[in-house]
C-alpha cells in the first residue's frame, strides 16, 4: 500500500503541475477583481504540489520506520498490503467497462433495449448463472425502467434507431 501511495503522490504532483499550467493560461480580464480568475486555481495547484510532496515524505518516513522496527513485523506487513488482489480490482473495473459499453450502445439501440442489456450483463457479471430468469429480469427490468423514466417522468432518453424503422 505504501508503494501505491508513493505512486499516487507522484501522480498528484504531476496533476498539480498540469493544473497550475492550465491556470496560468486563463486569460486575465480587467473585470476579475483584485484576485484574478487564476488566483485560487494557482493557489490550489501550489497547495496540491506541496501536499503531494508531504504525502510522499510521510510515506517514505513510515516505510523507513517500519524497516527500522524490523522487517519481520507481521502485523505491519499485513497493514501495508493493498486490500484485495489485482484480480479483484480488474473485476471492479469490469463494471465500469459494462457502463462504457452501455453508453456506447445507448444512442443506437435506445434506452429500453440498452437498459435490458445492461441489467443482464451486470447481473451475470455479479454472479448470476445465465438462465431464463436472467432473460426475464432483463426484459422486465428494461420495460420497467422505460416506463418509469421515459413514460412517467417524461425524460427524453435516447430512442435509438427504432423510430426510424417506422418511417
Amino acid at each position: 500500500m505504501r508503494k501505491a501511495t508513493l505512486a499516487v503522490s507522484a501522480a498528484l504532483f504531476v496533476l498539480a503541475v498540469a493544473y497550475w499550467l492550465a491556470a496560468d493560461a486563463i486569460p486575465a480580464s480587467r473585470l476579475a477583481g483584485q484576485v484574478g480568475a487564476d488566483g485560487l486555481p494557482k493557489l490550489l495547484g501550489l497547495a496540491l504540489g506541496v501536499l503531494s510532496l508531504l504525502l510522499a515524505g510521510q510515506t517514505l518516513f513510515e516505510m523507513r520506520r517500519a524497516a527500522a522496527a524490523g522487517g519481520g513485523d507481521d502485523q505491519d506487513k499485513g497493514e501495508d498490503r493493498l486490500p484485495g488482489s489485482w484480480r479483484e480490482h480488474l473485476r471492479a473495473l469490469g463494471l465500469i467497462g459494462i457502463g462504457v459499453g452501455y453508453l456506447l450502445v445507448l444512442p443506437h439501440l435506445g434506452y429500453m433495449v440498452s437498459a435490458g442489456l445492461l441489467l443482464a450483463a451486470v447481473a451475470t457479471y455479479a454472479g448470476l448463472k445465465p438462465s431464463p430468469a436472467t432473460l426475464l429480469f432483463a426484459a422486465g427490468g428494461g420495460i420497467l425502467f422505460y416506463l418509469i423514466f421515459v413514460k412517467i417522468l417524461q425524460i427524453p432518453l435516447p430512442a435509438g434507431f427504432w423510430p426510424g424503422l417506422l418511417r
Binding site: 463494471l95 459494462i98 457502463g99 437498459a115 445492461l118 441489467l119 443482464a120 450483463a121 451486470v122 447481473a123 451475470t124 455479479a126 454472479g127 448470476l128 429480469f137 427490468g141 425502467f145
Partner: peptide
C-alpha cells in the same frame, strides 16, 4: 446480482 444490476441502472 439483481440488486447490483438494478442500482447501477
Amino acid at each position: 446480482p439483481y440488486l447490483t444490476a438494478g442500482i447501477f441502472m
